[in-house]
């Protein structure tokens, strides 16, 4: 196995307990919320049936997910914050602490960009693992819902409907449109690279590096944000706008990686 993949594994391995904790937290909060809300719903329906009231519409798994907007968003937001901080910590943890692992990491017989890419890949693995875990949880939660709700109160719903009924899912985490997923996560990946390169600017030039890093993030952020909000529909056709955006992203990506690789292999100080 090549050293890049070994480094990816090393980084994943170092974060495994944090990742499992996030998964556990997500599962715990979501299942608790789901069980509680479903119980309340079923009780309400039973009560209505006992009183002979006719309810207009049964309820579906998607309805319950729709009721749990906030509760489902909490573990997701926590995970985003934790992973967001880890984008920085994945570097700084190698400088701080008794082991100062950076000494070992940067004297491994491999090109330094592998270290950079492995750390980035590890972050992406964590993000996608959390998203995938959320999908698995939804499957599990749907099964749980089906067990809890008697079929006479239950309305069937599509899996996509359940995803669509939570705004955090449909707007950010799991957009139903595949292209949208690629674009969102593509921009996310780009943002991670930009932050990595900013960290390396600081690690290479220390105090003045902080200023360079802030400027660099601001410029890249403006370019990426500008491309997102690019409103040229009055002049360009949609596919041309897409091409322009794509070029901007590619330029930012190219520049960020070039600079990042250069810093990590030539300028960084341990």
């Amino acid at each position: 196995m090549n050293r890049y993949l070994k480094l990816v594994h090393l980084e994943v391995h170092r974060f495994r307990y944090a990742l499992f904790s996030l998964m556990f937290l997500t599962a715990a909060i979501q299942i608790t919320g789901l069980v509680h809300t479903t119980q309340v719903r079923v009780k309400g329906w039973r009560e209505a049936a006992r009183l002979g009231e006719h309810s207009t519409r049964n309820f579906s798994f998607a309805d319950v997910i729709g009721d749990l907007q906030f509760l489902f968003a909490i573990p997701i937001l926590i995970s985003i914050v934790v992973l967001g901080l880890y984008v920085f910590l994945i570097w700084y943890r190698d400088w701080i602490g008794r082991d100062k692992f950076a000494y070992r990491l940067f004297t491994l017989p491999t090109v330094r960009r592998n270290v950079y890419m492995a750390k980035a890949t590890a972050i992406f693995v964590f993000v996608f693992a959390m998203v995938s875990f959320q999908l698995l949880m939804l499957l599990l939660e749907r099964q749980l819902f089906n067990w809890m709700v008697p079929s006479e109160y239950r309305m069937s719903s599509l899996f996509a409907e359940a995803v669509a009924s939570n705004l955090v899912f449909v707007r950010f985490l799991l957009p139903l449109d595949g292209i949208q997923f690629v674009v969102y996560y593509g921009i996310g990946i780009l943002a991670v690279f930009v932050l990595f390169t900013a960290v390396l600017l600081e690690r290479s030039y220390r105090l003045p590096g902080i200023v360079y890093a802030i400027l660099y993030v601001a410029v890249c952020g403006a370019a990426i944000g500008g491309a997102v909000y690019l409103n040229l529909y009055n002049y360009f056709y949609p596919r041309e706008i897409t091409a322009i955006r794509f070029c901007i992203y590619l330029m930012v990506m190219g520049f960020t990686l070039t600079l990042g690789f250069r810093l990590v292999s030539k300028k960084i100080t341990v």
Binding site: V8, V12, V125, F133, A160, A164, L176
Partner: peptide, 22 residues
Amino acid sequence: TSALILLILASLGTFYAYGAEL
């Protein structure tokens, strides 16, 4: 790592191939 990557490929792949269409 292998398990996480398999999980990612399987679940996101299945979702966007079959599950995401409303």
